[in-house]
Nucleic acid binder design. Structure first.
Length: 561
RNA sequence: GGUCUAUUAGUCAAGGGGUUAAGACGCCACCCUCUCAAGGUGGAAUCACGGGUUCAAAUCCCGUAUAGACUACCA
């Protein structure tokens, strides 16, 4: 038996299969011409954040636009980062945005699809088979360097202003004889498995990126770690190459942070003689941090990075999706404008329209999209979704809504379901502030905003006159005519233009009058259409609230005196 | 330090040799209007800098600057 074989057997005693066996188990997919296979490959470290959601979404679209396959692979080779129920969490977040994988994990333990296991911790045997073959071919070797030694190498490199890394003459264990390696392993020394890189840093290679075009890199000459020491689980680089080859991924669409390791991945594909998939490196989602500089949106530090944040805010997921689409493909907004009634599935992604530069996450824009989205929903839809949201985040409001279903829907229908609907709700969480005054439960001790007319006696006259003689809700136009009539009678201008010309001739104008009525009924100076509000409130409540308002004024006065 | 990427208004961006340099969000003004939210009209605001190439450069080339990513037995 040759020495290399002995070493390989010692390192991987349990490997029974060969790469060729796996090639048979996972044959090339028979998909129609041009169909793309993509994947989303997160670590189960908790919620999906905006950046990865965007990337998942692009992967999904890129596959679906061609009737291809989109699958979910869980990258849990770093066991200490894994979080309980992390997979279900990811699945739920994706599902929430209608991203349903065709293959991959479906819960913490199970998966569907013929190219599994789809969780890396269960692919150990595969990685070892591939790695063993590398050892046999002289492309991988055990490295016994301790962390301190690596640190030392690094310090020397920094001191001499040399390139940092484990390569060339710095790669001590590379030149270890096979016998020595065997001896060390037998004596129980800890080791990692490293790539014996055949690359030359002074040689250039040209790699193609679907988003950025051709990029020139130096060849990789780093002896990167393939298998980690303690559990012999693969590193990202190695797992990526093995998995994406065996799962027959055609398009690797991932964040820009990976672009620097592209030469490593290319080299591994070369060594194995595997077909290189197409790569697309997406611009990162950024934010401005406290120091005023841009940085990658961070899962840990930025609350707005989490999908959960928008859920709490009550931003409809459809709006988040629309926003993601607008930052994902630059021509999406235009397409939406031209195809307002088409299904989003009809929009096709284009690599050329994916931005290469990082995008600042723009919450204002999201709010605007959300506002427009909500304005197009029916009152019933608003009601249903609001109740669902409120049950989770504002239970009291939820029960009020449920006890007054028909009434609530009528409220939401004010200036809705018309050609140019009202646009004031930006999120479910914002709705209560727009409608609370319609419910007596929230109108027990209203805080009245101040009006232009502040004299109590005058207010009393206005409200009493209005209630006694001019409260006619039979028709919006006649109602307003009545209001104008009263305005003139009380010495105010019913015509605002007229008033502006000669303000001295009047005590005020019609908006001052309606202002008083509005505040009396709602406590607010700004509300939707007064006529609609009064119709819903009804005569009895109007009277009640007028009285309440007038009383509140006297209370205030006596307090001041 | 090294490698790579990016750079068009406050933000997202179109445009890839000749354009009055699109559009969206935001901002401002006016119009409409019973108040808002809208809607309408208009406006301010952009090609990072320096050199080339060219009759002509935001666009091509070379530098520089700035920002970001990577440079882990994290992904």
């Amino acid at each position: 038996m040759n020495k290399l074989q002995e070493l390989a057997d010692l390192m991987f005693p349990n490997v029974k299969k060969t790469i060729a066996d796996y090639e048979k188990i996972y044959p090339e997919r028979s998909l129609k011409e041009g169909a793309r296979v993509t994947r989303f490959a997160p670590s189960p470290t908790g919620f999906v954040h905006m950046g990865s959601l965007l990337s998942a979404f692009e992967d999904y679209k890129i596959a679906k636009d061609t009737d291809g396959i989109f699958y979910l692979r869980i990258e849990n080779t770093d066991q200490k980062r894994s979080v309980e129920n992390g997979i279900v969490g990811i699945l739920n977040d994706l599902k929430n945005f209608d991203i349903i994988p065709d293959e991959g994990m479906i819960d913490e333990e199970h998966s569907v699809g013929a190219y599994g296991p789809y969780i890396q911790s269960e692919r150990q045997e595969i990685y070892h088979t591939f790695c063993k073959e590398l050892v046999l071919k002289g492309f991988a070797y055990p490295c016994f360097c301790k962390p301190e030694e690596l640190e030392e190498i690094r310090e020397i490199q920094e001191l001499n202003k040399e390139r940092i890394g484990y390569y060339g003459s710095f790669a001590k264990c590379r030149s270890l004889s096979i016998d020595e390696a065997i001896k060390k392993i037998k004596s129980g020394e800890e080791y990692v498995v490293r790539l014996k890189s055949p690359g030359n840093f002074n040689k250039k290679i040209m790699l193609h990126d679907e988003v950025r075009g051709d990029i020139e890199f130096p060849e990789n000459d780093l002896d990167i770690v393939l298998l980690k020491s303690t559990d012999k689980l693969p590193t990202y680089h190695f797992a990526h190459v093995v998995d994406d080859h065996l799962m027959r991924t055609t398009h690797v669409c991932r964040g820009e942070e990976w672009i620097a390791s592209f030469p490593i991945h290319y080299q591994l594909f070369q060594i194995f003689n595997f077909k290189l998939p197409a790569y697309a490196h997406l611009g990162l989602v950024m934010k401005i941090d406290e120091n005023g500089t841009r940085r990658k949106l961070s899962k840990r530090k930025d609350k707005e990075a989490s999908v959960e944040f928008y859920h709490k805010e009550g931003i409809p997921k459809e709006a988040v999706k629309l926003y993601l689409m607008t930052i994902a493909n630059s021509n999406f907004e235009e397409w939406l404008d031209n195809n307002p009634n088409s299904s989003l599935d009809e929009f096709k992604f284009d690599f050329k329209k994916i931005s290469a530069s990082g995008t600042l996450f723009d919450v204002e824009k999201l709010f605007n999209i959300s506002k427009n989205y909500l304005s197009r929903q029916s009152a019933r839809t608003i009601y249903d979704n609001l109740v669902i949201w409120a049950e989770e985040f504002e239970p009291e409001f939820a029960s009020i809504l449920k006890n007054n279903q028909d009434y609530a829907i009528k409220i939401f229908n004010i200036e809705r379901e018309v050609e140019k609907p009202r646009k004031d709700y930006v999120s479910y969480s914002s709705i209560k502030n727009f409608v609370f005054y319609m419910f007596d439960e929230y109108f027990e001790n209203p805080i009245y905003e101040s009006t232009k007319i502040s004299d109590k006696e005058e207010i009393k006259i206005i409200l009493n006159t209005y209630f006694a003689k001019y409260l006619d809700l039979s028709n919006k136009d006649t109602w307003f005519l009545k209001v104008k009539e009263m305005t003139d009678e009380l010495g105010y201008a019913s015509n605002i233009k007229e008033y502006k010309k000669n303000p001295k001739n009047y005590k005020g104008n019609v908006s001052d009058i309606t202002g008083v009525i509005r505040v009396a009924l709602t406590s607010k100076t700004n509300t939707p259409d007064l006529y609609e509000i009064m119709k819903l409130l009804g005569k009895e409540k109007i009277q009640e609230r007028f009285t309440k308002y007038i009383n509140s004024l006297s209370v205030k006065k006596s307090k001041i005196n």
